[in-house]
Write a protein that binds this DNA or RNA. Structure first.
Lengths: 145, 145
DNA sequence: GTTTCATGTAACTTTATGTGTTACATATTA
DNA sequence: TAATATGTAACACATAAAGTTACATGAAAC
C-alpha cells in the first residue's frame, strides 16, 4: 500500500460513521469497507479517540461512533489528532550539522515548512467533516482562494 | 538517513556551486561536503541538469557549475526539476476505488492537495538561490505572509 | 457469574521507498 | 592514449508504514 494512507483511512472511516448516525460500527465492519485490517482501523481511530473525535465501546453492540456532530469536526482536528504531517521533512543527516551551509539551508527550509504548515492548518480548519460527507457537496473542496 | 533529503541535498549543492563562481566542482568534492556518496550527488544534480539549472562536464577539470546566475534560479524551479512533492500523498489502495466514499474522499483530498501545492509553489517562486546563500541574509526565509 | 463480543496492544512479518555502494560504460581533456 | 569525470545499471542496506497474529481487557446480555 502507499505511504501515509492513514489520513485517508481516517477520513473514510469518519464518513462511514457519519453516514450511520447513532449506530456504532465495529473495527471489523469498517476494515471491510476500507479494505484493510481491523487492527489498522483501531490504530487510526484510537488516535481520534484520544482527541475526543470518536468514541469506542467494547462488548456486544460495541464499536465506534462520532463523539460530536459532523458539523463540529474539522479536518484540522483530525489532522492534528493523528500527528500527521502534510509536508515532507527535508532535514539533513545529523552528523552533517558541522557545515554552516547545511545548518543554514536546514534553518531556511524549516522556517518555510513551519510557515507552510501553519498555512495549511488554517485552511483545514475551515472544512468540516459534514462538508466532505454530504452527497449534495459533489462540487468538491472549498477552494483555497 | 532521513526521508526525502533530496531537496536538502540539492539546495546544499547549489549553495556550494554559487559560492565558487566560475569554478566547477566534481561529484566527489560535493559528496565530501554533503557527507554522502558521489553517485547520490550525480543523481540529484542530474535532474537539475535536465532542467537547465546546472551544467555537467566530463573529463579533467570537469564537474558541475550553475547554468545561470543564482539570482535567476528560484526554489520553485529546483523543486519542480526534482519532481519532489512537498506534500505527502494520501491516496487509497487502487483496489479500493469501487467504494464511492473512497472515491469521494480521494477526490476531495486530491483537490485540496493540488490547491495547496500550487500555493506553495507560488511561494517558492519568490525565493531565489541568491536569497538563501548570502551571508547577509541571516534573517532567514522571506515570510509567507 | 459466565458467555460473548469488541476494543487495546504487543510482537512480528511484509512491503515500499530512499539511500549507499560497487562496477563499468562513455565522453572529454591534455 | 592516459587520466579524469559524468551516466547509469545493479544490488545491498536502512527505515517506516502497513498487514498479521495472538492475546489481554472490558462491557453487555443471558
Amino acid at each position: 500500500m502507499k505511504r501515509s494512507s492513514r489520513l485517508s483511512i481516517a477520513l473514510h472511516a469518519l464518513v462511514h460513521l457519519q453516514a450511520q448516525p447513532g449506530k456504532s460500527l465495529t473495527s471489523a465492519a469498517l476494515a471491510t469497507c476500507l479494505m484493510t485490517n481491523p487492527v489498522v482501523v483501531r490504530r487510526v481511530l484510537g488516535e481520534l479517540r484520544d482527541a475526543d473525535i470518536v468514541d469506542a465501546s467494547k462488548g456486544p453492540n460495541g464499536g465506534w461512533t462520532l463523539s460530536r456532530p459532523a458539523e463540529e469536526i474539522t479536518l484540522r482536528q483530525v489532522y492534528e489528532a493523528m500527528g500527521e504531517r502534510l509536508l515532507v521533512r527535508t532535514e539533513s543527516d545529523p552528523g552533517d550539522k558541522a557545515c554552516s551551509i547545511v545548518r543554514h539551508v536546514d534553518r531556511v527550509m524549516t522556517e518555510f515548512l513551519n510557515d507552510a504548515e501553519a498555512l495549511l492548518a488554517a485552511r483545514l480548519a475551515r472544512t468540516r467533516l459534514s462538508d466532505i460527507a454530504g452527497e449534495a457537496l459533489s462540487h468538491g473542496f472549498p477552494h483555497l482562494g
